[in-house]
Structure formats: structure tokens, C-alpha cells
Design a protein around this nucleic acid. Sequence first.
DNA 1: GCACTGTATTTCGGTGACGAAATTTCGGCA
DNA 2: TGCCGAAATTTCGTCACCGAAATACAGTGC
Lengths: 173, 173
Amino acid sequence: MAEHPHRHPTAPRDWVDGHVDRWQPVLPELDPDIEGAVTRMQRLVRHLGRVREQGVAEHGLHKHEFDTLHVLAGRGGHAAPSDLRTDLNLAPASVTGRLEALERRGYISRTPSTEDRRKVDIVLTDAGRAAWHEALDVVGREEHRLLGVLTVEERRTLSDLLRKVMLVQEAGG
Amino acid sequence: MAEHPHRHPTAPRDWVDGHVDRWQPVLPELDPDIEGAVTRMQRLVRHLGRVREQGVAEHGLHKHEFDTLHVLAGRGGHAAPSDLRTDLNLAPASVTGRLEALERRGYISRTPSTEDRRKVDIVLTDAGRAAWHEALDVVGREEHRLLGVLTVEERRTLSDLLRKVMLVQEAGG
DNA sequence: GCACTGTATTTCGGTGACGAAATTTCGGCA
DNA sequence: TGCCGAAATTTCGTCACCGAAATACAGTGC
């Protein structure tokens, strides 16, 4: 039977339900709810990423450019490359590449730090702040469209359940 | 006040709670539960990806290689590139690249389909199936460790809420 | 002052992913 | 039959990312 045993037989099914059904005979030890939740998170995150890419493109930015400006703005407009490395979860080499591109476009400035000369001071320029701010409202619109189907209580339940999982991850293994 | 207004004041807080608090003054229109849920999904997905990458590496595979073999095995060991394209959410060009690498390693075979000559029959070889099977039990262990903190009912609730969101995404804009 | 260890950043070489365009084949329709 | 739009796959050019090594500097111990 392809139906989830505890759901209403006519409840709408998404792509992942079919995915889980296909795997059930191959890997019977699979928990349908764990597999379903993880797979849905993966696909939702990927979808939101694509939409953001496409949305900020209308403002002349790429997703990774916007993300970089975003964390920079979140830090008050000035930071060191190593700060961005942790916030963006990037390899050091990748930060350099992003900053070079943003500097060429005039969105940030890079000056050697006087206080610690290993460091580099990254400052968001006025142009950079303007670009970030223009693209800002596009981001989050899709998140609201998708999660908007949930009631306020459901949204809080979702967030709370995910927090519970996050805490296990943060505690480490 | 940094506390979420409806949660118990001493409830444990994860990294995302702090993240939301930091952005709240900058972007007051932000819904904490939407932002929290989305951010947590993003970080959980990235974490699971890293663990999977590291886990299958012990068996001489990369994450994207394992994922490809996994989907192929899930379809009974034979499929067309376009099947993988949808299952893996990839651009057509990326599928070709992955298949070429797997073919070089002897894990799959590619033969032009006789029935529809636009298509290509991809078949999992014995070596490919063995590689997949060896790495298999590593994958999913972390998912169970993390989502295992939730009760059976909570897991189903989580999966159901995410399905509700997925259906909106699948319906399109 | 000098060696040593650790940190910050960049450079280099290589790989995977993507969009766009080309190629081959299918399926319908005149 | 012969054409034509659609579908499946590959090729091509480009780009961001990563790991590892290189460079430059800071801080500590002697």
C-alpha cells in the first residue's frame, strides 16, 4: 500500500511521499517521517536558494554577492574576511574571490588594517549599502509565500520542533 | 527583550534564536518563526550534507557520487539521465559530468537506448552497487541521531507541516 | 634579538555546477 | 511522405568553490 498508514487516505501527497514510497521496499528500516522531513527540508532550502538567486538578479546581484553584502550590513558595514568566513561558512580562498568581485563593482573597500597588519578592513560603501537595501525586500517574499499557508500556531510549532533538532546538532556528537 | 514572547523564559536557545534577535531591530517586519524555521532548515541541511560528505569519503566516494549512485539504486539500478536530473535537481549539463566520472570509475555503464534513441540507458554495475551498499549505512545515521530527539508524534507533525509547505511550492507561483 | 608557533589572507591548480546553444531523435500532422 | 515543434542529451565557455601551499604578521619563550 502506498499510503502513509496514519494519514487521511485522500490527503494531498507531494513529490516526497512518492519518493518515500519508492524507497520503502528497498530500505524497510527507513523511518518515513525522518526521511520525509529531511528530504523536504533539502528541497525547500534548494528552492528558496534558487528563488533568491533569481530575485536579487533583478537588482543586478548574484545570490552569493547579496549574501556577502547582507552579513556585512548585519555587522554594521565593517568586518574582516575571517568574520565573513565563519558567517558564510566558506573556505578562506572563497572569501577572497567574493571580496575581489565586490571591490571591482565598488560595493566594498579593502584596506590593510593598521591595528593588526595581518588583517584587512572591509567596509561597505554607500553604493554597496544601496544595492543591498534595494534587493532586500525581494528576499523573504518567497519565504512568506510558502510558510504563509501555515497558521501562526503551526509556524511556531515548526520552528520549535526544528529548534529541538538544532540543539542536538549544536551539542555535537 | 530578546525572548520570544510565547516561549518559556528558560527554554534552551539555539544559535538561530540569537541570529533572529540580532536582525529584529534592523528588520522589524521579520516574522521570527518564519525566519527561524527557514534558517534552521538551511543550517540543518548544510550540516547533514557535510556529515554525509565526510562519511562516504571513508568509503572512497564523494557526496555527489554517492547521491547519484543512491538515486540510481533506488530506481532498481537503471535509469535515464533525465530521471537523475529531476531526482537530483540538477542542470542537464551537470548530469553528464557526473555520469562521465562514474563511468570512468566503472560504477555505471552508458549505452544508447534502443527503444528511444534520444535516451541513454544508465545501468549500475556490480562494482557500483557494491560501493553504494558499503557506504549506505553511514548515511542516515546522523539523520536518526538528530531527529531521534523528537517523539514519533512530533516527527510526524514536522513531516506533515513541511508537506503542507511543499505543496505550495509545487503548485508554483 | 631570534626561533617558534599560531593566525590572517592570498595565490594556485583543479573540479563541479550552471546557462546557452548544438545535435539527434521522436511524434504529430498536413 | 515530409515538415516542424518538442524532448533528451551533450558540448562549450564561464564561474564559484575548495584544499593546499605560500606569504606576512603577531605573540611567546629563551
